[in-house]
């Protein structure tokens, strides 16, 4: 299997305080990687640094995608103010297609088909004329997942996608992700607080506490000392 993401010595600091300290790892095509760790251990910062959303002090992340284009499906943590944003499901999902487009960006047949396909795949096609604010938490997360899929079909990067969802909605979202990973071979990189599900679905675990504590196969992680603390 080939490497899709290679992070080398990533450091992030806010106002002189290091929050991510020399983290290096690799992700291969088709991996399902869960980034775990306690609150405030730099998980979101690491992901944002990889995507170029926060400046790094040193190090870099290289995405090795086919045809060399930067097409990454990112699903950020949802802010409260975004929940009342006036946008329909269809408007939201298709906006993911923008990443592959050039000026002037006008949606053509191809973009509309892509959006429709993923809305159907994630079972939100019937809701397409509804406002995102009217949806339940689980439906809304599927809308953002569909948007991320429109932006990329090789790698998804998700920041706590199930936070704030009830157990059933979380289960639904996990099975969507599992399906995408198994059926379509999409690489999944996910920050998770939910250790039980991380252990159930992931193939690889990255344990972060500012420094990299562990990165490797789930089976090896379960045997390591680091897993004990979080799985208690």
């Amino acid at each position: 299997m080939s490497v899709i993401l290679k992070a080398e010595h990533i450091c992030v600091a806010y106002e002189g305080k290091k929050v991510v300290d020399h983290v290096s790892f690799e992700v291969e095509h088709g991996d399902y990687l869960c980034i775990v760790g306690e609150n405030g251990t730099g998980k979101s910062s690491l992901v944002k640094a990889m995507l170029g959303l926060v400046p790094t002090c040193c190090g870099k992340a290289v995405f090795n995608l086919k045809d060399g284009k930067r097409r990454i499906g990112y699903m950020p943590q949802q802010l409260d103010e975004q929940k009342s944003f006036p946008a329909t499901v269809a408007e939201t999902v298709i906006s993911g297609c923008l990443s592959g487009m050039r000026f002037p960006k006008i949606y053509g047949k191809k973009e509309k088909q892509t959006a429709e396909e993923y809305m159907k795949y994630l079972d939100i096609y019937e809701l397409r004329h509804k406002s995102v604010g009217e949806l339940s938490g689980g439906q809304r997360q599927r809308v953002f997942l569909a948007r991320a899929l429109c932006a990329a079909d090789e790698i998804l990067v998700l920041d706590e996608p199930v936070s704030g969802l009830d157990i059933n909605a979380a289960k639904d979202l996990y099975s969507c992700l599992e399906k995408l990973n198994r059926e379509k071979g999409i690489t999944v990189v996910m920050i998770s607080h939910d250790m039980q599900s991380a252990m159930k679905y992931a193939t690889k675990i990255l344990h972060l506490d500012k420094k990299l504590l562990f990165c490797g196969k789930k089976e090896d992680y379960l045997l390591s000392v680091h897993s004990k603390k979080l799985l208690m």
Binding site: I72, Y74, P76, T92, Y107, A148
Partner: peptide, 19 residues
């Protein structure tokens, strides 16, 4: 001309930048 980009930047800046 930039309607869709403005929509995305207004809606979700992190996503817009990541893509």
């Amino acid at each position: 001309l930039c309607y869709h980009d403005i929509f995305l930047v207004t809606y979700d800046e992190d996503f817009a930048r990541a893509s």
